[in-house]
Amino acid sequence: MIIVTLSLGVLAGTYGIVFGVPEQITQIWGSAPTENAASARGQTSGSRGQGRATTVVLAPLEERTYRLVLRTVGSAVSLRRADVVTTETGEVVEAALHANTLIEKGDVILRLDDRTERLSLEIAQANRDLAQATVTRYEGLRNTGNSVITDVALSEAEVALRLAQANVGLAEVALESRTIVAPISGRLGLSDVDIGDRLSSGDIIVTIDESTTLLAEFEVPERSIGLLAEGKPVFVSTPTYVGRVFEGRIKAFDSRLDSVTRSATVQAEIDNSDGLLLSGMTFTTRMSEETDPLPVVTSTAITWDRAGAGIWVAQDGKASRVPVTIRYRDGDQVWIETDAPVGAQIVIEGAAKLRDGAQISTGQTGEGQGA
């Protein structure tokens, strides 16, 4: 019986703790406990209503420049490059196509069999001489008062002379086209054309690269388009010359982005007067630029909500949220655009616990965000 009584007492106590004492029993016990409980509840409610300040760490908002650095890979092409193409059909009788030979514009690099063209020129010259003799004879007779030579006859003789002269010119052009000369100064590439080969019109004989100046071609992503400007320095390196950096300058860049890669093609001129670099080499390019000073905060100061990124600014013991636009990141430093003034105290630790207008207390003040 004693055990049952104790068990009922324990159950009643537990019920009272969890669900409270029933009002009927409270009335039996008296009003004093009720008043004491109400007083206790009122004190608790009052203490909650007072609110507690959130402890945070503050630091002044600073401004610093950001150094934009772009590294990308490209390849080199000659500033001037020419594919030498034959315009005639014929057999090669002379060739000077030694690879890597430096040649000047106008140097003969190949001759085709030109016997037919030489004979055609002789025939055209003979017809011209005959026409010239006829015109000279007619003019002489007219000057002596001979009426046999009419104006019509003299005019026809002069037209025949002009046609003969034109035929001589055509024959000379045909003969010259059998001799192929260098269109530009530069260095000869490899060629498989040799004496005895028969070429057709349109065949590529050799490529000439004028490589005293090279063009480094590379792609710049959309996010780095702001780095591009004609004349801007570009630094390039190649695995062939480890540790050596060649300086160039942007010559041109595309007026639109590639729809697939979202990048623009850039060409930079590189001085190669010493001939160390070859067309087709792979380059690693680097460009850099310092921005105007921008506000910079630690990454822990940035918070996010549905509206985007923001920082908390402390003023008069309260925190207010100011939106920001993130521009650059470097480690735990973030460069931003914001309406918060430089020098304002911002929350760099404890920001995740804040609500707009929340009271804050300073547990520690940061001397600088860059520290």
Rank of each mutant, 00 (worst) to 15 (best):
L6S: 12
S7D: 09
L11G: 02
T14A: 13
Y15Q: 05
G16P: 08
I25H: 01
Q27R: 11
W29I: 11
W29N: 09
T34D: 09
T34M: 03
S39K: 05
S39H: 10
G42M: 12
S47E: 11
T54E: 12
T54K: 13
V57M: 15
A59C: 14
P60C: 14
P60W: 11
E62L: 13
T65C: 11
Y66T: 08
Y66P: 01
Y66M: 02
L70I: 01
L70R: 14
T72C: 06
G74Y: 04
L79E: 00
D83S: 11
D83K: 15
V84I: 12
E88S: 06
E88D: 13
T89Q: 13
A95F: 14
A99L: 12
L102T: 09
L102M: 08
E104D: 15
K105S: 10
G106C: 13
V108N: 03
R115D: 03
T116A: 04
S120Q: 15
A126R: 11
A126V: 01
R128P: 06
T136G: 06
L141A: 05
N143I: 08
N143F: 06
T150L: 04
L154H: 04
V159N: 05
Q165V: 01
N167V: 04
L170I: 12
V173C: 01
E176R: 02
E176W: 10
A182P: 01
G189W: 09
D197H: 08
S200R: 05
G202L: 07
G202V: 05
I204P: 00
R223H: 10
I225F: 12
G226A: 07
L227C: 11
E230R: 05
P233G: 00
P233I: 04
V236Q: 03
V236D: 07
P239R: 02
P239M: 05
P239I: 04
G248N: 00
R249G: 12
I250E: 07
A252G: 15
A252K: 14
F253R: 00
F253E: 02
F253P: 04
R256F: 14
V260F: 14
V260E: 13
T261N: 15
T261W: 10
S263T: 15
E269V: 13
E269G: 10
S273G: 04
D274K: 15
L276T: 03
L277D: 03
L278K: 15
S279K: 14
T284W: 04
M287P: 01
D292E: 11
T298E: 07
T300A: 09
I302C: 08
W312K: 04
A314P: 07
D316N: 14
G317K: 14
G317H: 14
P323D: 11
Y328S: 09
R329D: 01
D332H: 13
I336R: 07
I336W: 05
D339C: 03
P341D: 02
Q345K: 14
I348N: 05
I348C: 10
G350P: 03
A352M: 15
L354S: 07
L354N: 06
R355D: 09
I360N: 06
T362M: 15
T362F: 14
G363D: 10
T365P: 00
A371K: 12
